[in-house]
Write a protein that binds this DNA or RNA. Structure first.
Length: 351
DNA sequence: AATGCGGGGCG
DNA sequence: CGCCCAGCATT
């Protein structure tokens, strides 16, 4: 804890840990938003998003009153957009059922959408000084090394063991700071690849370090190989405006907007196939599209080869089941777009 | 118990 | 490149 007080990073959702009197002054709403953003996302990536989000929606009431599209726009580029929709729904539940106050109790927190065991423990301990343990990726790695746990860390039995360990180590004084200290240790010293055991305050207690095993631990289950798929973006222009549509409410990039994308054509599509597809799906007649660009987008689970095609249409009546509209490319600020779509649109603007 | 869900940092 | 990140919901 002394180490944490000296080395903790100053972060916008955190009270300055070097100022004793700041404890308890954190805004629970800030903690909630930051923890949602931090799920599977590194601190450095989150900082700017967090500041922009809080500036735009400073309290749970503004978040609850906001349109989902606006929340997604504030999340645009951060990934895992389900988190944004869950957070939005959680805010509405809090305003409707709790008068806008965030519960201090971990079980009540965990009942909210998007809040699981980790986030519930984090909010309860950090925002409300409740004695709740947390195990995130950092804590799991720190504990696995401290105790030289060789079991595969992703297994449910191992997770349960780690939670029991974390709970046993948790002090009754300042549990929130303890939890943050463990995570900070994992993020800054007890790193996955190159652990800085020389600087670690608990190296003398670390069984992995004593055995020289720190680089082998924790053990993880091998991941499935990412699939490679082809997505064909057909950018359709009519009189300076382009067709945009909203993606379905589930699956990849749910609720985000896009230029029309064909995700089913395998192999070499050829422009004629896309002409037929646009006709059948949108009811629009286009000239055979021309290639504008190709780029690759990688996520954890798949590699997507994007083929950007450009076409124009004159007549035809738009047929569409879900939301679609024609827009100038410099007037898309209100439409949340995932990164590959932003990339495609930037390319078109350069054409 | 397994899978889907983004995007970026870093060696 | 590959691995991992202040996880969660769904099946």
């Amino acid at each position: 804890m002394g180490w944490y007080r000296r080395h903790a990073r100053v972060l916008p959702w955190r009270a300055d840990p070097q100022r004793e009197d700041d404890r308890g002054r954190v805004d629970p709403y800030h903690v909630l938003v930051s923890e949602a953003m931090l799920q599977q996302t590194q601190v450095a990536t989150v900082v700017d998003y967090f500041q922009r989000f809080i500036r735009a929606l400073p309290t749970v009431f503004e978040l609850a009153a906001a349109d989902e599209q606006r929340v997604l726009s504030l999340w645009q580029g951060l990934g895992y957009y389900r988190r944004a929709r869950h957070l939005h729904r959680a805010a509405r539940a809090l305003v409707d059922q709790h008068g806008g106050t965030i519960p201090r109790n971990a079980a009540k927190l965990a009942a909210l959408p998007g809040i699981g065991p980790y986030t519930a423990g984090a909010v309860a301990s950090i925002a409300f000084q409740q004695r709740e343990a947390v195990v995130d990726g950092n804590v799991a790695r720190v504990l696995a090394r401290l105790e030289a746990i060789e079991a595969v860390i992703d297994e449910p039995a191992t997770r349960r063991h780690l939670w029991r360990l974390a709970a046993a180590l948790l002090p009754s004084r300042r549990p929130g700071d303890f939890n943050q200290a463990m995570m900070e240790l994992g993020a800054t010293l007890c790193r996955p690849r190159s652990p800085a055991c020389g600087d670690c305050p608990v190296a003398a207690l670390c069984r992995a370090h004593q055995c020289g095993l720190e680089r082998q631990l924790p053990r993880r289950r091998p991941r499935r190989q990412p699939q490679t798929v082809e997505h064909h973006i057909v950018a359709i222009e009519r009189g300076g405006r382009w067709l945009l549509e909203k993606r379905p409410d589930d699956g990849l990039w749910a609720g985000m907007w896009q230029l029309p994308v064909n995700e089913t054509l395998d192999g070499e599509p050829a422009a004629p196939a896309l002409v037929g597809w646009v006709h059948s799906r949108y009811g629009l007649d286009i000239a055979p599209p021309a290639t504008a660009a190709n780029f690759t987008h990688r996520t954890t689970h798949r590699t997507i080869h994007f083929h950007l095609w450009q076409a124009s249409t004159h007549g035809g009546r738009l047929r569409r089941g879900t939301a679609a509209l024609w827009r100038r490319l410099d007037q898309l600020e209100d439409l949340p777009l995932a990164n590959p779509q932003r990339c495609a649109i930037t390319t078109l603007q350069g054409c």
